[in-house]
Simulated scan of single mutants.
Amino acid sequence: MNLTFYKYQGTGNDFILADNRNGNYSQLTVEQIKKLCDRRFGIGADGMMLLGEQEGYDFEMLYFNADGNEGSMCGNGGRCIVRFANDIGIKKNEYHFIAADGPHEATIDGETVSLKMKDVEGIRRYKTDSVLNTGSPHYVQLDTDVMHLDVFKEGQKIRYNKDFAEEGINVNFVQVKNEDSLIVRTYERGVENETYSCGTGVTAAALVFHHNDNGFNAVDIETIGGNLNVRYNREIDGSFNNIWLKGPAIRVFEGAINIADND
């Protein structure tokens, strides 16, 4: 099989994308996707996405983790696939697409893409930390010096804790710079390592460390790979809606690769 692919990144969170509207790549196996995402033996990426057709939407987003398995929602991936859709000729002022966690809206302005995330019913306390689902499950822990933390070691401990090991969880370590600004580092399940950025993770961090009891919030977030912004409304019952993740989505390169049937 010959695969025409496109490489995109959103604040260093990088993805392989392919146009699957004709269904040519629907038979890709777990092992093939895993090999494509391998940084030594393949193209190299945190995940892979197939853009497909879905009635009633501009496109469908099918996301795979770097381990080859189909994943849940990816925020930076969602922003990158919107930019990809625009680049391959799906020109819109506002996009409506379907992903693993349901429908999404998005807007594009050059290299900046704003993505509307799913509503969040609330935040669950876990010991002194927080757990919530922003399209993917996230654990959020406060740290006073996040840039000197061993994120791989500490994140792995939580991800494989007996309470989370079976389904897995993404682990975010958050330093509060001020009421409007955070630094976030994330260990991602499926990648099983720290990534340069995680869209659903920074969204989770912003919701946990909201600075208004109710109403509109806007938070700037630093990651290793760059800066993102999350804005949202918090309701009196502790739920969150109108959540938007904004940041760069950049095309890096494109190419073609032959995938052996026995991979």
Rank of each mutant, 00 (worst) to 15 (best):
A85V: 03
N69T: 15
G102H: 09
K92G: 06
G71R: 03
N76L: 00
C74P: 00
F59H: 08
R83D: 00
M49Q: 09
A85W: 01
G75T: 10
S72M: 11
G110R: 12
R79I: 06
V82T: 01
G102E: 03
G102C: 05
A66F: 06
P103G: 11
H104R: 09
S72I: 01
M48V: 03
L62K: 15
F59K: 09
N86M: 12
G102D: 05
G44Y: 04
G42Y: 13
G77W: 07
D87W: 00
M48L: 11
K91H: 01
G75S: 10
P103V: 11
N65A: 10
R79F: 08
N65P: 08
D87P: 03
N65V: 06
G75K: 12
R79A: 05
D58C: 03
E70G: 04
G52L: 01
N65R: 12
L51G: 02
F41P: 08
T112F: 05
I81F: 02
G42S: 14
I90M: 08
A106P: 01
Y63N: 07
G102V: 05
V82P: 03
G52M: 03
A45S: 14
G77C: 09
N93F: 04
G71Q: 04
A106H: 02
G110M: 13
F59N: 00
F59A: 08
N86L: 12
G102L: 04
E111A: 06
S72K: 12
Y57R: 04
I81G: 01
A106T: 00
G42C: 14
G42T: 12
E60C: 10
E60K: 15
S72A: 15
M61L: 13
A100D: 04
C80M: 13
E55C: 13
H104F: 07
A66S: 14
D101W: 10
L51S: 09
D46L: 09
I90H: 02
R83F: 02
G110V: 10
D109M: 10
I108A: 13
Y95G: 03
I90K: 00
I88A: 05
T112L: 08
N93V: 07
G102Y: 07
F97Y: 13
L50A: 08
G78S: 05
G110D: 13
L50G: 05
D109A: 13
N76K: 00
A85R: 04
E105G: 01
G44K: 09
N86K: 15
M49I: 05
N69I: 13
D101G: 09
I43M: 10
K91A: 08
T112W: 04
G68N: 11
N69Y: 14
D67I: 07
A85L: 02
Y57S: 06
G89P: 07
P103S: 13
M61Y: 06
G78P: 00
Y57K: 01
R79P: 06
G68A: 11
G47M: 07
A100C: 06
E105M: 12
M73G: 02
Y95V: 03
I108S: 11
N76V: 00
M48Q: 03
S72N: 11
G56N: 11
